[in-house]
Every structure is written in C-alpha cells, then in structure tokens.
Amino acid sequence: MTHEELEAFRNRFNEINESKEPVRTNRLSILMTDMEQTYNIPNFYSAAFNYHNPQVIKLYRQVSYARFFEGVK
C-alpha cells in the first residue's frame, strides 16, 4: 500500500460524493470493489487486517456508510 494509492482513492471518493443519486451510490459501490481488489480486503471482519491497515479500512468504511439505499429495510 502506498500513500499515493490511498490518496487517489480518497480523491475519487470526494469526487463521487458530489454526484447525484442513484449514480453516486453506484459509483461508491464500484469504488469499494476497486479497494477490495487493490488491498485484498477480506469479505468478513478480520481484526488482523484492520490492525495492519487502519487507514485503508477507515476509508473503506466511510465509502460504505456514504451509500444510500432508498427503500431498503
């Protein structure tokens, strides 16, 4: 993981966050997938991954929480 990679993902997140729905949430989901592939983020909670990659998981969670699911119960 390089600082530049993570910064590029942050910039992408900020850019996407200014979009309108539903495009915004779709693009955020794609961003999450790209982060999963780049950083090998596990499908299930991993304390070890989170410990060794705090900045990655912090941004990943921000992206995840920013998505909007209208009508999801």
Rank of each mutant, 00 (worst) to 15 (best):
E4G: 03
E4W: 06
E4F: 08
E4S: 05
E5Y: 04
E5D: 09
L6K: 02
E7H: 10
E7T: 06
E7P: 05
A8Y: 04
A8C: 01
F9I: 06
R12M: 09
N14L: 14
N14C: 08
E15R: 03
E15Q: 01
I16P: 06
I16Q: 01
N17L: 13
E18V: 09
E18N: 13
S19F: 15
V23R: 03
V23S: 07
R24A: 07
T25F: 10
N26H: 14
N26I: 14
R27Q: 15
R27S: 10
L28Q: 00
L28N: 00
S29F: 14
I30F: 12
T33H: 11
D34L: 10
D34M: 12
M35C: 07
E36M: 09
E36C: 09
E36D: 11
Q37Y: 12
T38E: 14
T38D: 08
Y39W: 15
Y39Q: 04
N40H: 14
N40C: 15
N40A: 15
N43Y: 14
F44C: 02
Y45C: 06
S46Q: 05
S46F: 11
A48D: 13
F49S: 02
F49H: 06
N50E: 12
Y51H: 13
H52K: 05
N53D: 12
P54R: 00
Q55C: 04
V56C: 02
V56F: 02
I57R: 03
L59Q: 11
L59C: 15
Y60K: 01
Y60M: 01
Q62T: 11
V63H: 02
S64V: 04
S64D: 06
S64W: 07
Y65S: 08
A66Y: 09
R67Q: 15
F68V: 13
F69Q: 01
G71T: 00
K73F: 13
